[in-house]
Design a binder for these strands. Structure first.
Lengths: 224, 224
DNA sequence: GTTTGGATAAGTGGATACAAAAATCCAGTG
DNA sequence: CACTGGATTTTTGTATCCACTTATCCAAAC
């Protein structure tokens, strides 16, 4: 149903891949704090390999925007400033809008029903807590932009979702209530069902930007 | 005036940086053919270092989409399929559209004049050949999206320009005439001068998508 | 008490060495 | 003559080692 969400596949064929998956997961779960320094030797010891594959994993994580790499100064967990967070949402809004535009012509009744199910699941998860809700929320969005059928677009959007994930958790814990989230996303499904491509794209853009401005108020816990 | 275009700064503080810059430049200039395999040992020998920093440079280039990396199978120059090329333009169109939307409120008469100058320079370069024209064309676009003031957005758009650069050369050599390119881009400047944000964004999107469909016809020289 | 300088420790970048995987080549077989 | 299987070669992936940079800490000076 949902292909792979945003996380890479669990099977690691090389040590570098294993290190990347390990760190990617840890970073998504917020195991390291923003600004914290990641020491290759320690990570390598944790997962039983040498520093080398870990170093290469760092480069990939840096490309994902999850860590920052500076010459002779190592690897630090990349927190987003308020500006950066806003920018991520701005980019997400047009990319997910584009995805909707591309997906719209392909949508059928089955897709709408699946979206209803995903929304229901997201709502139920929301009652349990932010952790599940964030994943279900990603799943909901991933289902939509996945229907665009554009591999690079999908990867880019997924990467943005991962980068903003920690902030979504904070936001949901402190502000959002499952019911208002439900309404927000119901609006999306309604727009898809209505069948107006341009309008659906606009609704998706607004949805993402709307989330951004709500989130912005809570997203500056002194992170660099 | 133009900050850095899309290419990274020329000074390399580490060997990895040097390898990255060297390969980035070579790839942009089309020194390697799409599908060609890059052997770390050879590259390392060419620029006088060991394989290691070259390997790490490969990872960054892979993140840029300029090469493809597969476990145990090395590094190959990433050609774009027609679908991938189209997708790159689709993404470019919404990102550059967004950049225009963000830049519009900041534009003054000086900016319009600078755009006129850049357009003139692009036109003159076009008479010389595709190589210069492509760079001037990038410069023109970079000036616009640079005014958005959004670092990540700028980086992403610049990366897309680099990825499609070889195809722009082909296209320009075979199809485009300096004068029609001039008219296309004059339309952009006119839209900016008119001051309607939504309209300017739309014009930029259309410009990019229009280029895509023209380019598509010439972009499938059997590349993988 | 704060600042500055330098010794010391910690960590990063890069080269070499070695092991494992893939590609190539070649001989034997149908 | 095409094909299969296996030895050889090539190339990739990882570990270890060393040199150099950066950070830390302590003591002396202001």
């Amino acid at each position: 149903m949902i292909a792979s969400l945003s996380s890479p596949s669990p099977a690691a064929s090389t040590a570098e891949e294993e290190a990347y998956l390990y760190l990617h997961k840890a970073l998504r779960l917020g195991r390291y704090k923003a600004g914290e320094r990641l020491i290759p030797e320690d990570i390598a010891a944790e997962i039983g390999m040498s520093r080398m594959p870990v170093r290469e994993a760092f480069r990939r994580l840096a490309a994902d925007g999850l860590v920052t790499l500076r010459p002779n100064r190592g690897c630090v967990v990349a927190g987003l400033t308020l500006d950066e967070l806003t920018e991520a949402f701005e980019i997400r809004s047009v990319l997910e809008g584009l995805a909707v535009r591309l997906a719209m012509p392909k949508l059928t009744a089955e897709h709408f029903e699946e979206l209803d199910r995903l929304l229901l699941r997201m709502e139920r998860a929301g009652e349990a807590g932010s952790s599940d809700w964030v994943l279900r929320h990603q799943e909901f969005h991933a289902y939509i932009y996945g229907l665009s059928g554009r591999p690079k677009l999908i990867r880019q959007i997924a990467a943005l979702h991962v980068a903003i994930e920690p902030y979504m958790r904070i936001w949901f814990d402190y502000v959002e209530k499952p019911l208002s989230a439900r309404e927000e996303h119901q609006t999306l499904i309604d727009a898809f069902r209505a069948g107006d491509v341009a309008e659906a794209e606009r609704v998706m853009e607004d949805h993402v930007l709307g989330t951004a401005s709500l989130l912005a108020e809570f997203a500056s816990p002194g992170r660099r």
